[in-house]
């Protein structure tokens, strides 16, 4: 479409089309080829542009595009989900701030599920393979992704990590995202469910401070509840704040260290795994 008259001509090589614009100040004015020049549109908008002398002057036109900026990531995420669903593998994307206890929760989960469900772990950190080593010691197959300077995992990283793994069918894949309550929220990895973990030492206002992350959670796990006697953390107030962001969100309060309410978490996991059918 011609941006000036809206006539629908979109061929870049088409002739200049005469229309009401053949008036002074219009985009069909003569100008020195190659020089930067102005066009004043009927609504007063001034367009400045230039083109080489070898090319004829062309009116500007509008291209309607409609493309999602994260389309590449979302398409890869859909392929990951398809690949893992076909092997009946439940995939969880675990997100939290650094130090909220993701790795400790994974270790406790591995110990409890031993012999019941085959668990594979993809660990995301900017540097080191410390977490992958920890979960390997706890009995899982693990791949470490180092994002370098990047602040989140994306679907292409997961695709590459999956190529390094042999996934038995009917298992569980836990993806531990980079510790960060901001960036990972925007990137679908191909997971079936998103789990956001917040520890009691972080305070009750975390959901209000980082609403984008909590708004996308399928489950919120409040961790380190064994520390509650030493803190002023009010579980009820945390739940109220989380439900301001997502009124129907499910919450669990657990301690991976003492084992308190870990059974609720395992029950949730097995329910999700069963619902893959």
């Amino acid at each position: 479409m011609c941006a000036i008259c809206g006539c629908g001509s979109s061929s870049p090589d088409g002739p200049l089309h005469p229309h009401a614009a053949a008036q002074p100040g219009s985009h069909h004015d003569d100008h020195a080829p190659g020089s930067e020049h102005e066009h004043v549109l009927p609504d007063g908008t001034v367009l400045r542009h230039s083109h080489p002398p070898s090319q004829p002057h062309r009116p500007s036109r509008v291209l309607e595009v409609e493309r999602a900026l994260l389309a590449d990531n979302d398409a890869q995420a859909a392929r990951n989900r398809q690949r893992l669903s076909s092997s009946h593998t439940l995939v969880l994307n675990l997100m939290s701030s650094p130090g909220a206890g993701k790795t400790t929760l994974i270790e406790a989960t591995l110990r409890r599920l031993q012999g019941r469900l085959f668990v594979t772990v993809i660990e995301g950190d900017q540097q080191t393979s410390l977490d992958a080593e920890r979960v390997r010691r706890a009995g899982a197959q693990a791949v470490q992704i180092n994002t370098g300077k990047a602040c989140h995992l994306d679907a292409h990283m997961i695709d590459r990590a999956l190529d390094e793994l042999t996934l038995p069918s009917d298992g569980l894949l836990l993806i531990e995202n980079v510790g960060n309550l901001v960036c990972p929220a925007s990137f679908d990895l191909g997971e079936h469910k998103r789990v956001v973990i917040a520890s009691v030492t972080e305070g009750e206002d975390k959901p209000l401070k980082y609403p984008d992350m909590f708004a996308r959670a399928d489950l919120i796990v409040v961790s380190k509840t064994d520390l509650l006697p030493h803190l002023d953390f009010d579980c009820q107030r945390f739940a109220e704040h989380a439900r301001r962001i997502q009124p129907r969100v499910e919450l669990l309060f657990v301690s991976a260290r003492s084992g308190d309410h870990l059974d609720d978490w395992l029950k949730w996991l097995t329910t999700q795994h069963r619902s893959l059918d």
Binding site: S60, R61, V62, E64, V65, A68, L69, P247
Partner: peptide
């Protein structure tokens, strides 16, 4: 009430180009 179930509002799309 803090009881809003939100939909949409998370788009991030290139919609249009003006070109010469």
């Amino acid at each position: 009430a803090f009881a809003l179930v939100v939909s949409g509002g998370d788009e991030l799309r290139l919609v249009r180009l003006e070109v010469v």
